[in-house]
């Protein structure tokens, strides 16, 4: 039962990773790409971590996996703001986009 639940959660996490990678490739600027990395990726990773924690051999191992997810959440969120503020200072300004754009290439 645990194996099945874990596998289900891992499979549920994969589409978020795929969507995040698509976002990284398709979104028009660094700011929009950071949205893909901080949101879809973290949820995908969270589901995979919970899936692995469910299958873990002990509570300590499960907690370690959840701790890893928590630390990655913290790092990714702080890193995104640092990259965005650096891009704002040295790179192009965020684009204001209120019309249809072909972003797929």
């Amino acid at each position: 039962m645990r194996e099945l639940l874990g596998t289900g959660l891992i499979l549920l996490g994969l589409p978020f990773f795929i969507a995040s990678t698509l976002g990284l490739l398709r979104f028009p600027d660094v700011y929009a790409r950071l949205h893909a990395l901080t949101k879809a990726d973290n949820v995908g990773l969270g589901l995979i971590c919970i899936g692995l924690a469910v299958q873990a051999s002990s509570i300590a191992v499960a907690l370690k996996i959840v701790l890893i997810w928590g630390l990655i959440l913290l790092a990714s969120s702080t890193g995104a703001t640092l990259i965005a503020s650096s891009a704002l200072r040295h790179g192009p300004a965020p684009r204001r986009d209120d019309e249809d754009t072909h972003a797929g290439r």
Binding site: A19, D100, T101
Partner: peptide
């Protein structure tokens, strides 16, 4: 909130035309 945000980004990423009202 995270799940809602991830779904929103995923929807935008997989949509055929990238249509977003981006602003600061």
């Amino acid at each position: 909130s995270s799940l809602k945000g991830a779904l929103e980004v995923a929807k935008l990423a997989i949509s055929q035309r990238y249509h977003a009202n981006t602003l600061t």
